[in-house]
């Protein structure tokens, strides 16, 4: 939300036409405008995101839902991101275990706790945030590209002319599917990166598999925080990306800009929510 698309918005407001320029804007006004445009853009985007979120929640509990479309979206999300997430999470598991192995080597040299310490961290932190960032990348951009191209080809106008709310018709199915599938994919991510870490620990540091496979340090609080984060991300990604799509304008460029706005805005939303939920989680469950 920070300055994304600001180049776009200032581009459109800056293109003053000929005529009607009786008062030539001064240099200072120009400078103020160039600072103001991104700020205005950020504020109005944040406002739109919250409005879209409110509508999405409202229509999730009110009115008929297109359940077949929800199922279709679930399938789309899973189908699009399964391979991608597997690859990324496997690398993440290998990287994290390799790095912490080096750290352990420097201090204690005792590798036996590696898996036990790694798992809660994965559940509470790495798997939700990296998984969600990847879903934002893969699914969020897809949502923005789809809805954005519907906007620039006036399909969304046609929906509205037929008394159909774009948020209800287009975003709500993606919202419901997004919440559910993000949860599924993050659980899957945790599994993949734990297994990849287990393999890495075995290969590089000779940690036996059954030593690594140790769930004793996982607290209920870790699960709760992990799931809460995941649900928040699952709600944020479709809403933020859908809003980016609905805000598209112009021709084929418009879709490109909407897509880039979606990936950046939803990644930022994920990072901010992670911080908020993580901080609240720490205050509610300090240490066991």
């Amino acid at each position: 939300m920070t300055g994304v698309g600001a180049d776009r918005s200032s581009g459109s407001t800056g293109s003053t036409g000929e005529g009607e320029r009786a008062d030539r804007p001064s240099r200072i006004a120009d400078i103020l405008a160039s600072v103001g445009a991104p700020v205005f853009y950020v504020l109005s985007t944040v406002g739109d995101v919250f409005k879209t979120f409110g509508l999405a929640v409202y229509y999730t509990f009110r009115g008929k839902k297109r359940w077949d479309e929800v199922i279709n979206q679930c399938y789309q999300i899973g189908n699009r991101s399964l391979v991608f997430i597997t690859v990324v999470m496997a690398f993440l598991g290998m990287i994290l275990i390799f790095q912490s192995g080096l750290q352990v080597k420097r201090i204690t040299g005792d590798f036996s706790q590696m898996g036990a310490v790694y798992l809660p961290l994965l559940i509470r932190q790495f798997s939700p945030i990296i998984g969600a960032l990847m879903i934002a990348t893969r699914v969020g951009t897809g949502i923005a590209a789809e809805i954005g191209s519907m906007v620039v080809t006036e399909q969304v106008d046609a929906l509205r002319m037929n008394a159909t709310q774009p948020v209800k018709y287009l975003i709500v199915p993606r919202f419901i599917a997004g919440i559910f599938m993000t949860l599924v994919l993050v659980v899957y991510s945790t599994l993949v990166s734990f297994l990849a870490g287990m393999l890495t620990a075995h290969v590089y540091f000779e940690v036996p598999y059954d030593t690594f496979w140790d769930i004793s340090l996982v607290r209920w609080a870790d699960l709760l925080i992990g799931v809460t984060k995941t649900l928040c991300f699952g709600m944020a990604i479709p809403v933020v990306s859908g809003q980016a799509g609905l805000a598209a304008f112009g021709g084929s460029e418009g879709v490109g800009w909407a897509t880039t706005a979606a990936v950046v805005n939803s990644s930022l939303a994920v990072i901010m929510l992670d911080f908020v939920v993580g901080g609240v989680g720490f205050m509610v469950f300090p240490t066991n």
Partner: peptide, 23 residues
């Protein structure tokens, strides 16, 4: 509001210049 507009829009049929067909 967008919701109040739906009642008005039921009275209007619109043919869009760029087709606007749902792909």
């Amino acid at each position: 509001s967008e919701i109040e507009l739906t009642r008005v829009r039921f009275k209007i049929g619109m043919l869009f210049q760029n087709y606007a067909l749902f792909d």
